[in-house]
C-alpha cells in the first residue's frame, strides 16, 4: 500500500524583479524548482532522491512536509488529498510527516535547552503534560544515544557536537511517532566517521516502527546503502526512478550514468558518460528534454520534445535514447 503519492507536483518561485523591470512591466518570471514530479512511497519503504544541488530535491521534501505550498499538483497521504483537508486534520497529518534537516548547527534554537526541543512538539500536539513530556524526552534522548538523558536534557545546543545535535534533531522528529520521515541530506554535514552511526540510528527507527522515508541526498553511495528505491532528479524533474540495484547497475538515463561515473568508489570500466557544461538556468529551461544541452547523445528529437517518464514500478526513465550498459 502506498502511504504517500505525489502527482505532478510543481513549485515555482517568483523571481524578484528590479525596480526598472517593474516600471517596464516586464512579465513575472519564475524559478521552476519543482516542475511536474510524480512518485509514490510504499509503507515501510525508503525512496532515495538524488540529484545535484539546485535540482529541487530539497523543495520536494519541504512540499511534502507542508513547509511550502505547492504551485500545482497533488500530495496524497494515505490516499487523502492533503490540500483539500480541513485545517485540524492537516495538522494531524503533518504530525505524521516529520523532517530531519541537513544542518544540525542551524536546526536547533541556540537559546533553548536540548530537552525542550523534544518536549515542545509533544506539548504543541497535546500528547503529554509537562511531566510526562519530560520523561518521554529523556527516554528518547537515551534512545538516540545521548546518555545520560537527564544530563543532556538541560544542556544548550552549543555544548553539543554536530553528531550529537543531529541525534537531537532525530529525537525531535521521532518523538511525535511519525509514519513518514523526510531526511533532507540528514548525514551530509556529519563527519564521515559518524555518518554510519547516524545512518544506522535512522534505519533502526525505520525497522522498529516500519517507517517510510524519503531520503534526500546528493551522494549516490549513501543512496545505494539505504535506499530500496531511488529517484534521480534533474532540474525539477525525475529523470529515472526504480529499484536501487537496477538503476545503479543498469542506468538508462545519460544523467544517471554521468552521476555514477562521477562517484569514485564505483567500478566503472565500461562507464564513461560525459556531462558537458553547467546546469541550465531553471528560469529559462531549454526546449525539449531539459538535459539536452549537457547530454552527449542529444539529437534533434531531444531539442524538440520532452520525454515523459515511461516504464514500470521496477524501473522507469525519461529519455529518447536510453543507454544499454552495465555497471559493476
Amino acid at each position: 500500500m502506498e502511504i504517500l503519492r505525489v502527482e505532478n507536483l510543481k513549485k515555482y518561485f517568483p523571481v524578484q524583479k528590479s525596480f526598472i523591470e517593474v516600471l517596464l512591466s516586464k512579465e513575472l518570471k519564475f524559478i521552476k524548482a519543482v516542475d511536474g514530479v510524480s512518485f509514490g512511497v510504499k509503507k515501510g519503504e525508503i525512496l532515495s532522491l538524488v540529484g545535484e544541488s539546485g535540482c529541487g530535491k530539497t523543495t520536494v521534501g519541504r512540499l511534502i512536509t507542508g513547509l511550502e505550498e505547492p504551485t500545482d499538483g497533488k500530495i496524497y497521504f494515505k490516499g487523502e488529498d492533503v490540500s483539500k483537508l480541513p485545517k485540524d486534520r492537516r495538522k494531524e497529518i503533518y504530525r505524521s510527516i516529520q523532517i530531519i534537516f541537513q544542518d544540525p548547527y542551524a536546526s536547533l534554537n541556540p537559546r533553548m535547552k536540548i530537552g525542550e526541543h523534544i518536549t515542545d512538539p509533544l506539548l504543541i500536539h497535546d500528547i503529554a503534560d509537562n511531566d510526562t513530556a519530560r520523561k518521554m524526552a529523556i527516554e528518547m534522548l537515551e534512545r538516540v544515544g545521548l546518555v545520560p538523558g537527564e544530563q543532556f536534557f538541560n544542556r544548550l545546543p552549543y555544548q553539543l557536537s554536530g553528531g550529537q545535535r543531529q541525534r537531537v534533531a532525530i529525537a525531535r522528529a521521532m518523538v511525535l511517532n511519525p509514519e513518514f520521515i523526510v531526511a533532507d541530506e540528514a548525514v551530509s554535514m556529519i563527519d564521515v566517521s559518524l555518518r554510519a552511526a547516524i545512518l544506522n540510528l535512522l534505519l533502526s527507527f525505520k525497522e522498529e516502527y516500519n517507517l517510510s522515508m524519503l531520503f534526500i541526498t546528493h551522494d549516490l553511495s549513501v543512496a545505494k546503502l539505504v535506499g530500496e528505491r531511488i529517484a534521480v532528479m534533474y532540474l525539477g524533474r525525475i529523470v529515472e526512478i526504480g529499484d536501487v540495484d537496477d538503476v545503479i547497475h543498469h542506468p538508462k538515463h545519460p544523467y544517471t550514468a554521468a552521476l555514477l561515473s562521477a562517484v569514485p568508489s564505483f567500478d566503472k570500466r565500461d562507464l564513461k558518460v560525459d556531462i558537458r557544461g553547467d546546469v541550465s538556468n531553471p528560469i529559462d529551461l531549454p526546449s525539449g528534454c531539459r538535459y539536452n544541452p549537457r547530454c552527449p547523445f542529444a539529437d534533434d528529437k531531444c531539442k524538440e520534445s520532452e520525454p515523459e517518464l515511461e516504464g514500470d514500478d521496477f524501473h522507469s526513465f525519461a529519455c529518447w535514447h536510453p543507454l544499454d550498459i552495465e555497471v559493476e
Binding site: 513547509l67 504530525r95 534537516f101 536546526s107 534554537n109 512538539p121 504543541i124 511525535l176
Partner: peptide
C-alpha cells in the same frame, strides 16, 4: 528564516509559540 524556526514549524508550532519560544529569546 533561520532553520530552527522552520524546524519548529515542522513540528507544528503556531505563530505565537514561534515568536515567544524561538524568536524572542534570541532577541533578548
Amino acid at each position: 528564516s533561520r532553520l530552527f524556526v522552520e524546524a519548529a514549524r515542522a513540528s507544528g508550532a503556531g505563530n505565537l509559540r514561534i515568536m515567544r519560544k524561538y524568536i524572542f529569546p534570541n532577541l533578548v
